[in-house]
């Protein structure tokens, strides 16, 4: 089954404010989407709408394929060692060889460290490892470069390129510069209400 992601004319309202409207895009397999915009303009809300976690005020999103989300919330048990906390998700996702992702993201030395002691960048790497180990078709990434050092950022860009090369879709919301070759840029300012 090929991944597919289509958003038609979506609008987003948070509280009393209409953040954006009339936003449409279409992603074929292998395509990446870079969502840009200043803080508070609705990048994260757009990601959550695509993920189905937030109802759009208008319009609709259609998707085929499994979705994985990496946002600022880690969803790992703070008191557990990282390896054990990730282990729960590996079992849930039916992942049999998690070690490769740990090697790519240099997480091996951290597996015995309780999650609450990890730095911002290490937490981000842990969340990315869970995403890699799930092997899903549509990646939804909210500010994935936050806290990552230069080397890991480059590695991450390569990972996204590989994912899209294999027929996956990536939607990356980031105000930072991020190298996504061939990505369609969606600037939310253009749709601001």
């Amino acid at each position: 089954m090929q991944a597919q992601l289509t958003a038609t004319d979506i609008a987003c309202r948070r509280g009393e404010r209409l953040l954006f409207r009339g936003l449409s895009f279409e992603c074929a397999p292998g395509e990446a989407l870079h969502v840009t915009g200043a803080n508070g303009i609705g990048k994260s809300s757009l990601i959550r709408i695509i993920a189905g976690l937030l109802r759009p005020f208008a319009g609709n999103v259609e998707s085929t394929g499994t979705m994985g989300l990496v946002d600022e919330r880690l969803a790992l048990d703070e008191n557990m060692p990282l390896g054990k906390a990730l282990g729960f998700w590996q079992e849930l996702d039916g992942c049999c060889s998690p070690a490769n992702a740990f090697a790519i993201l240099q997480l091996e030395p951290l597996l015995d460290v309780p999650v609450r002691f990890l730095s911002t960048g290490q937490r981000k790497r842990a969340a990315l490892a869970r995403l890699l180990n799930r092997g899903c078709q549509i990646w939804l990434l909210d500010e994935p470069l936050n806290g990552l050092d230069d080397q890991t950022s480059r590695n991450f860009e390569a990972l996204v390129a590989l994912h899209c090369g294999g027929g996956g879709i990536a939607v990356v919301a980031s105000h930072q510069r991020i190298a996504l070759p061939g990505a369609t840029v969606v600037a939310i300012e253009e749709y601001a209400a």
Binding site: G52, G68, L69, R73, L74, A75, L76, E78
Partner: peptide
């Protein structure tokens, strides 16, 4: 509360 704040239920929903 802890799981809600950590986004655990969001990750469940995506699965």
């Amino acid at each position: 509360k802890d799981d809600l704040e950590a986004g655990v239920f969001d990750q469940f929903a995506l699965r």
